[in-house]
């Protein structure tokens, strides 16, 4: 080091210590925060998602009516922008006189609960299989690739329909079913990433230092996969919400009178030509939630691993 830079270095540094640079490059976390603040897609998606989550959590406080209360004297009331709409029922009422806004708020709970927990179950199954296959290779991997292929060959909607028609559409059964039907994406991605990482020298170093396979998987491999797992989970959650809506629409998901968005579309079907708002409002809710989750997931990927993107 030249005497010039010695003169610039702060007095706190003891002489004799090695300090090539006095300013440190911003840490990866600081850079990540910087990218997150300027990512419009992430901000919109995350705010929208946060809004839905807050509404779902505080539905009992926010909802103007009981979502199950029927009022046969006020059936099929138009929403506030309709010809006979009033501010009493902002989104109108359905064929049984229930308030659509209240049902929508309670429905958000069901969509989010099923979407989140099923995505977590799928993530646990898929990531475990993917990491084990990618890490151990050989016969373990052949078996796991076989499982993935079998899973990919299954028609998701068909299986979901038949199993939920047997199980009777209870929510826990639905969650487990959807978790077991969508783990393949996690497995495919984590397996190939683990395979690449397996050959990297930091894994070799850890092995040479005497680390157990469990330690290497948990401490070296898993932290490197976490971002990708979160991104897949967001896509998976959106997919699960759509499947749940489809199942409920077909009458094989959530049972009436529970307020599921898919079920609301299904119930509005009978009068869709006269009161199209009954399918448009829950349809728009599904659309907005799914797009919010996808935007947030894309944003997380851009923000956490910008290196792999153009």
């Amino acid at each position: 080091m030249s005497s010039v830079s010695d003169a610039v270095s702060p007095p706190a540094l003891k002489p004799g210590r090695i300090d090539e640079f006095d300013t440190l490059a911003p840490s990866p976390k600081a850079l990540m925060r910087r990218r997150a603040r300027s990512h419009i897609g992430l901000i919109i998606g995350a705010s929208l998602l946060a809004f839905v989550v807050i509404v779902a959590i505080f539905a009992p406080l926010l909802a103007p009516y009981d979502p199950y209360a029927q009022d046969l004297t006020r059936r099929l009331v138009d929403p506030v922008w309709g010809p006979k709409g009033t501010w009493e029922n902002i989104f109108g009422t359905d064929a049984l006189g229930r308030d659509v806004l209240s049902r929508l708020m309670y429905g958000a709970r069901i969509s989010l609960l099923i979407g989140f927990t099923a995505a977590v179950i799928a993530g646990i199954i898929g990531a475990t299989l993917g990491i084990l296959g990618g890490y151990f290779g050989g016969r373990v991997d052949s078996f796991i690739v076989y499982l993935i292929n079998v899973k990919l060959a299954l028609p998701v909607i068909l299986i979901a329909l038949s199993v939920s028609s047997i199980s009777g559409g209870s929510i826990p059964a639905l969650i487990i079913l959807l978790g077991f039907l969508t783990w393949d994406r996690y497995a495919v991605v984590t397996r190939s990433m683990t395979q690449q990482m397996r050959e990297r020298e930091f894994i070799m170093s850890s092995l040479a230092a005497g680390a157990s396979h469990t330690r290497i998987i948990m401490r070296e491999i898993f932290p490197n996969l976490l971002n990708q797992i979160i991104v897949i989970a967001s896509l998976d959650m959106a997919l699960i919400i759509l499947i749940e809506a489809a199942l409920s629409f077909l009458g094989l998901g959530v049972r009436p009178p529970m307020p599921s968005w898919g079920l609301m579309v299904s119930e509005g079907r009978a009068v869709m030509f006269f009161k199209p708002y009954l399918i448009m409002i829950p349809g728009a809710a599904i659309f907005l939630l799914v797009i919010a989750i996808n935007m947030a997931g894309d944003g997380i990927r851009d923000v956490t691993s910008p290196e792999g993107r153009g």
Binding site: R200, E201, F202, M204, S205, A208, A209, G210, E220, P223, N224
Partner: peptide, 20 residues
């Protein structure tokens, strides 16, 4: 064995876990 023999690898970009 690992307490007696330790490696230093070729590529310092691949031998350190980027998340630690």
């Amino acid at each position: 064995f690992s307490r007696r023999v330790q490696p230093v690898f070729q590529d310092p970009y691949s031998s350190l876990n980027p998340r630690k």
